[in-house]
């Protein structure tokens, strides 16, 4: 089993919270966006009681930080740009996996159309790497700065991610004679009050006509070829580190204690 956590730290010093998450969930891979804490300081905290975490050195993508419970040689980068790192996970005895981690441009600077256009490029890059590596057992995780229903996430020539495992298992869909491979996006299930836990990962409220209040910008997408190993029931939006709540009294992310984003956790079972 491999336990993974992604969190946009919002440039806050959250080492203590991260440590508690590591212990509580026995996390194997931490993936961070907007980490301003020095990697050394984070590593010192993670390894305070027992040395178990490794820092994964950066090459080109400096916006994503990774810490793993195994040597970084097992998670080598294969493709990067300034906002995404695609890594080839080659742990001994386990199937090989491609893990893409990204922090997509914010809506403060890019509108939905620009984000959708960039998703088309991103999707193409992922498919190139899958072709190069020779398999499609891929996961894409990160802060997409888009909700699961937005064009870039659902367009066939974008990330083509769907809410249904059954639909995703069809493998791909054809538009104008061109096949587009699916991603499964389990994050759809976390919208609204009927979900267990918070209604999203990011809360935004402003006096304008169109506001969702809760957004799910932090997402994990899974290719059909990896679905048999992806445990949907393990997927959580974390609202606590076990000792401290990451949300305030009204249930929204507590920026004073944690980040303005909530972390997401998922497991791969082999």
């Amino acid at each position: 089993m491999l336990t993974c956590v992604f969190w946009n730290l919002n440039k806050k010093p959250l080492e203590e919270v991260v440590c508690r998450l590591a212990n509580r969930h026995e996390v194997d891979i931490f993936m961070f966006a907007e980490m301003k804490t020095s990697p050394t300081v984070m590593l010192e905290h993670l390894n305070r009681e027992r040395t178990k975490f490794f820092y994964v050195p950066k090459l080109g993508c400096e916006r994503i930080e990774l810490f793993t419970r195994f040597n970084s040689r097992y998670i080598a980068p294969v493709y990067e740009n300034d906002r995404m790192t695609i890594r080839h996970l080659t742990l001994p005895g386990l199937i090989e996996i491609l893990i893409g981690v990204l922090h997509f441009p914010s809506k403060l600077f890019w509108n939905e159309s620009s984000q959708a256009a960039e998703c088309a490029r991103l999707s193409h890059k992922i498919q190139e790497q899958e072709l190069k590596i020779g398999h499609c057992r891929s996961i894409l995780v990160g802060d997409f700065n888009m909700n699961p229903f937005e064009d870039g996430m659902v367009n066939a020539n974008g990330l083509n991610s769907v809410m249904s495992r059954r639909v995703a298992l069809r493998g791909s869909r054809v538009v104008q004679e061109e096949p587009y491979p699916f991603f499964y996006n389990p994050m759809w299930s976390f919208f609204g009050d009927l979900s267990q836990g918070p209604c999203g990962t990011f809360y935004y409220e402003r006096a304008e006509h169109k506001v969702f209040y809760w957004n799910i910008f932090d997402q994990v997408l899974v290719r059909p070829a990896l679905l048999e190993y992806f445990d949907s029931r393990s997927l959580q939006i974390l609202a606590t580190d076990g000792a401290t709540s990451l949300v305030s009294g009204d249930g929204t992310p507590d920026n004073r204690i944690g980040s303005d984003h909530l972390p997401i956790l998922f497991q791969l079972k082999f």
């Binding site: 090459l59 080109g60 993508c61 080598a76 980068p77 294969v78 493709y79 990067e80 740009n81 256009a117 960039e118 088309a120 490029r121 193409h124 890059k125 020539n157």
Partner: peptide
């Protein structure tokens, strides 16, 4: 040559740095 447009330009190209020994690429 990029397949999809960044803006409205019909000709789009990426400059990709490669490290053959690492099997690594950076756009």
């Amino acid at each position: 040559k990029s397949r999809s447009a960044l803006g409205e330009e019909p000709f789009v190209y990426s400059f990709v740095i490669e490290a053959p020994a690492l099997n690594y690429e950076y756009e």
